[in-house]
Simulated assay, not measured.
Amino acid sequence: MQPNSNYVYPQIFWVDGCTDAGASCLPAPPEAPFPPPVPDRRRKPRNNRERRSVGFLVMFLLILVAFTGVGLCIFKIFRLEKELDEVRESASAEHIPPALEKFTGESEQSLRKEVRKAAHLTGNPAQRDLPLEWEPISGHAYTSGIQYRNRGLVISEPGLYFVYSNVLFRGSACDSQVLSHVVYKRNPNSPGSLVLMEDKGINYCTGQRMWARNSYLGALFKLRKMDSLHVNVSKIALVNFEESKTFFGLFKL
């Protein structure tokens, strides 16, 4: 069978990415996607308020460190001064130079001067009966080597003591009663009490007006261990208990 020469065949077109029909073209590679955006890691500048806060914090820490150093220096200085005062007091009390102490070989404890036994008591208005009650601590009152017990001063070491007592009596009207001021002692090994000093006042006021009378007692006594000294008055209501007006004490010679 012969083909029909009068038959018109349809046109066929080849489509590719090349513009030149005579050259062979390779397929185009796929396009790469765009890379992701890189985040901005640069630190944002702080505002003025944050900068001020940081500056104040740094300044506060520097000031705190400076004051701490000054406080430590002052503490060390006071400590050194205290130690120096103690050394001076011990040296002045012993009156022994260091060179002599080396030759004698005596210990520091044996050379230390004994504390002087003394006591000074002041008036105490909170009392209702006798003997008089005293204040042993507050104000000018103190005790050193002497005990204050049961309203009296108790002797712990026998010896020669100077004992004193002062009482100020006062009133708003004169009734001519006898004023009595007595210092006496007791001892558990001896019965009763023994009067050491006594003062009596009569005719100390006239008329219906305010009056005042001071009574002072003081003398040397040889006291035994466990002796307790006390003070009596004729009437508690007439006593002025100010610490500079009414007091009681002793010291060992």
Rank of each mutant, 00 (worst) to 15 (best):
L57M: 11
L217T: 11
R46V: 15
G192R: 03
P45L: 15
V183N: 00
T19H: 01
V163M: 05
S190W: 08
L196F: 06
V163R: 01
L100S: 11
G69Q: 02
F162M: 02
G249P: 00
R49W: 07
F169S: 03
A141E: 08
G69S: 00
L253E: 11
R213H: 14
T68W: 14
G171P: 02
T68D: 09
P136S: 09
L160V: 14
E114F: 13
G17S: 09
N6V: 14
P39D: 08
Q208S: 08
G139E: 08
A99G: 06
S92Y: 14
E106K: 07
S244N: 10
F169Y: 02
K222Y: 09
V233S: 08
S138T: 14
I146G: 02
P3G: 01
E243C: 04
P191S: 12
L196V: 00
S165K: 04
L57N: 08
S156W: 01
L229H: 04
N124S: 12
S107E: 09
I202R: 14
Q2W: 02
V87D: 14
V233R: 03
V154C: 00
H120T: 00
D40P: 04
C174D: 09
V182N: 11
K76P: 02
L160F: 10
V87P: 03
S24W: 07
E83R: 04
N4V: 13
C25P: 01
G105E: 05
P125E: 11
N48S: 15
V195F: 05
V154H: 01
Q11D: 09
M59A: 15
W14T: 06
S110V: 07
G55V: 11
N150S: 11
P35Y: 03
R112P: 05
R213F: 07
L223A: 08
N48C: 06
G17N: 13
V195R: 06
L160T: 13
Y184N: 10
Q11G: 11
L100Y: 03
R88M: 12
C174R: 06
E135H: 11
Q177E: 05
D175W: 07
V233A: 07
C174N: 11
K245A: 15
G218E: 06
N187G: 09
P98T: 12
K76H: 08
G123F: 12
D199S: 15
R41A: 00
Y161H: 01
S53M: 14
V183I: 12
